[in-house]
Write a protein that binds this DNA or RNA. Structure first.
Lengths: 240, 240
DNA sequence: GCAAATTATTTGTCAAGCTAAAATATAGCT
DNA sequence: AGCTATATTTTAGCTTGACAAATAATTTGC
């Protein structure tokens, strides 16, 4: 019985890509390590530099490598981050493959759970950060961009607290998308800034009551969702 | 006041990438359209073919293009799919950036909601597919690979039914990850095959009762989660 | 009319060299 | 000695020009 291998990697560069990728996943190269220079790799793989470059470029766009020019440059293995997930997300949204209502549906399920988990794992340091974030929200608004950032902070901190990196990634992606929509639509700051927006949520989380935290976050998410959905049409029509 | 543009795209190829990407997102090229051949692009952008190729390769790995060789070949714009999300996911898992317990936590939140949504949107055609899937589950097991596929079917159908493409994508990603774990660990088929595994879930969904659907799915997910977590250690130690 | 051979078009790959970036070593000056 | 400018080294980025390979359309031969 033969092995029936090839089929897909008709391209040499893909074969190279997969070998390097496997090598990284198996731990032959760890985060921070530098791959041999292109020319050495070309020699080792017995292919041209172009094929190597294609492979490295591909691995760079999927987040496994960062490539730097210069004397101490080269292809460095990077700790894989959720950035690629994030980007995939943003692209899908920009191509209308995910809609704001769908996103809102997701948020409504995930954010309360995140708040609940955060309530279970709150520490003194976390509490401090949350209180600071609330304090900053009370300061006068300087610019829309800054306002967006400030408003996201609580969600961001809770996501970090929840201890689930997937949830954290999703929340971050959604924050980024939301920012983009808000920044594009440029709404009246006051509709975006009810006083004490996040106070009940934070209080519930700090009390350590997971049910209360989930309840308050759900309320908040529903409210903000209504605001956001109003912006959708404006956003879709904009198209710079 | 100057515009302060460049900063990031130090590379020509990235500049090309971004221009083409923007062009696609703005709808200048629609799914199915073919970009001009590399040589024409090179002329138009006034750069070499290699720079163009680097850009096209990058866009291919992020899922915007598929490139085919030959007379009617070229770089074709593709409808962006959730495949890239899927891949990002798998990579994160393989690099230990997401753990099985975390995944299980996510599943426990998402799958019940998916079932609930499915219950609200069930149609005759859906009902038919679900019943077929249940029937297939009752047939004798032929191979592990096939068993995995059969067991995933119900989840897959529900995900399609739920009408939220993000949820669908997440469920699909998790199915794929689960398959990989199960396939690697090669557990005893009988532990994987309690009779009528999905019957209560499907019944609840078909009854149109969203609360019942969510409840049954949660029960099922918790049960399967226990099985899966038992496999985790075996999976992490395997490392082919 | 059909099959085989040819041609055209396009990406894939190669080779060799030059440019640009970035760190390091060296030289020259005060 | 200490600083600054210059040169060197190492690396990826880019260019050019050529050929290979895949694929479809066209022509040729029968």
């Amino acid at each position: 019985m033969p092995s029936f291998k090839p089929i897909r990697p008709a391209r040499i560069s893909e074969e190279v890509t997969e070998q390097i990728k496997r090598s990284i996943l198996l731990g032959d190269f760890k985060a921070g390590d530098r791959l041999p220079p292109e020319r050495s790799l070309a020699e080792e793989f017995q292919v041209s530099r172009v094929a190597i470059r294609d492979a490295l470029r591909s691995l760079e766009t999927s987040g496994f490598l960062t490539i730097r020019q210069g004397a101490t440059g080269g292809a460095f293995v990077t700790e894989l981050t959720f950035e690629s997930l994030n980007n995939a997300f943003l692209d899908l949204f920009l191509s209308d493959k995910i809609s704001l209502p769908e996103l809102q549906q997701v948020r409504l399920v995930i954010e309360p759970e995140v708040a609940a988990l955060a309530a279970e794992r709150v520490t003194e340091a976390h509490a401090q950060r949350l209180k600071e974030a609330l304090a900053v929200e009370e300061e006068p608004i300087r610019s829309l961009a800054q306002d967006i950032e400030v408003k996201g902070a609580v969600h961001y901190i809770l996501a970090q607290m929840c201890g689930n990196r997937f949830f954290e990634a999703v929340v971050r992606s959604m924050l980024r998308l939301t920012s983009q929509v808000v920044a594009a639509v440029q709404p009246d700051p006051r509709t975006m800034h009810p006083e004490g927006l996040h106070v009940p949520v934070v209080q519930a989380v700090l009390s350590g009551d997971r049910r209360a935290a989930a309840r308050e976050m759900k309320k908040h998410a529903e409210e903000f969702g209504r605001t956001l959905l109003k912006m959708e049409k404006a956003f879709r029509n904009r198209r710079r």
